[in-house]
Computed example of a mutant assay.
Amino acid sequence: MRSASSRIALLMAGAAALAAAQSARVPPPAPTGDLDVLPVQGNVYMIAGAGGNITVQIGEMGVLVVDTGLGSMSDKVIAALRKLSNKPLQYIVNTHFHQDHTGGNEAIRKAGVTITGANVTGNLTDARAGAQIIAHENVLDRMSAPTGKQAPTPADSWPTETYTSGQKEVFFNDEPVQVIYQPAAHTDGDSLVFFRHSDVISTGDIFVTTSFPFLDLEHGGSIQGEIDALNRILDLTIPKHDEEGGTYVIPGHGRICDEFDVVEYRDMVTIIRDRVQAAIKKGMTLEQVKEAGYTKDYDVRYDTKTGFGSAASFIEAVYKSLSKKK
């Protein structure tokens, strides 16, 4: 179990991370203060305070990071990575495309290298190429643009290696790493990242501890996909004893968790989904559903009052997701 001081630091880090907006459409404000670098277990660490949480795997072969935080925090993130390891940064995995998780891609990628045959021979280094960026193909689609159009992000921040379904596998630092696609969850390009030997899952914004879910309907998110993804996390997690410990879960924002935390979150999301579904069957309008207070028993814990992750925005997203024509 972690010390009380560690838990306090995690809660403070979660509050700082929540200040970063979770949409690629609105430039989020830069966080203030230093980063928190916390050991999780095995070869895995968490960096909090750079926007979305950043997961770091270190070992003899090099460094792999999941998400890169906001661009304004890249220098601090790179400095934190160098304190953790003097080995080369070789891989970046993006859980989705929002700026608080991909804004540091360009700078952090340039701080890394591509090593041809890294999983086999570990030679033929090309520092000019920077680290490889792995993500679902929909992340690349959201960050880039068709020829002749202005892309929303610089080309050097785009994923360099994508997959379209199922999962992408990397064997790095003597550990199998699975990048697992979760269709139509928080967005249409979400991936879970499972470090099998360390027994740690990085969830991106599918799971957070600081707010209600942000369902980005405009970019392919849905309430059923969100619940399916939370259930997939639970399929992968195994508690050590008395529902504590075992597999650790790094959320997109907030503190380090275990299976029971995800169970509570999944149950909350499912209960609210069922309440809204029942209201729709009764013919209630969106405004009536908003006024019904279907989140009140969870508001103290999860309601951010305004913006993404607030009770009002979550209820609206659930209503619209359930109301879509099949």
Rank of each mutant, 00 (worst) to 15 (best):
L217F: 03
R128H: 04
N231Q: 15
D228A: 14
E218H: 10
V170R: 10
I180H: 02
T160Q: 05
F194Q: 11
V200S: 09
S198L: 06
N138A: 12
I201N: 11
N173H: 04
I227H: 01
V193G: 01
I133M: 04
T203H: 12
G130C: 03
S202Q: 14
D199M: 10
P183Q: 10
P154Q: 13
Y163L: 06
V179F: 07
G225A: 04
A131K: 05
Q178L: 14
T164I: 11
Y181W: 15
Q224L: 11
D205G: 04
S202Y: 00
T164S: 13
G166I: 08
I133V: 13
E137W: 14
W158K: 15
P154D: 10
E175P: 08
V200F: 10
E175Q: 14
T210Y: 02
F171G: 01
A145P: 08
S144N: 06
D141S: 13
Q178W: 14
E226A: 13
I227A: 06
V193P: 07
T210G: 05
R196L: 14
A229H: 07
G130H: 01
A184G: 00
R232T: 13
E175D: 07
M143L: 15
I227W: 05
H219R: 09
Q182S: 07
A131H: 02
E175S: 07
N138M: 11
I133S: 03
I227M: 04
Q167W: 03
L230P: 00
F207A: 12
I206D: 02
T210M: 15
E218Y: 00
G166R: 05
L215D: 01
E137T: 11
H136A: 05
K149D: 13
A135E: 02
L217G: 08
R142T: 03
R128K: 09
R128M: 07
G225N: 02
R142C: 05
Y163H: 12
I133Y: 09
S211E: 12
R196D: 00
T203A: 12
D156W: 01
S157R: 08
L140T: 06
P146M: 05
D141Y: 12
I227N: 06
G166S: 09
F172R: 11
A131V: 06
Y181D: 07
S165D: 09
V177Q: 08
D216P: 02
I180T: 06
T209E: 11
D190C: 12
G148H: 01
P146Y: 00
S211M: 13
H197R: 15
G225K: 06
F207W: 10
P152W: 15
F194E: 08
N173W: 13
K149S: 13
S202E: 08
P154E: 11
S144Y: 09
D141C: 03
P213N: 06
E137C: 09
Q178D: 12
E169Q: 15
T187L: 03
S222C: 05
S198Y: 04
D141R: 15
V179W: 04
E161D: 12
I233P: 01
F207H: 10
A131P: 07
V200D: 05
A185H: 04
F212S: 07
V170G: 01
Q132V: 13
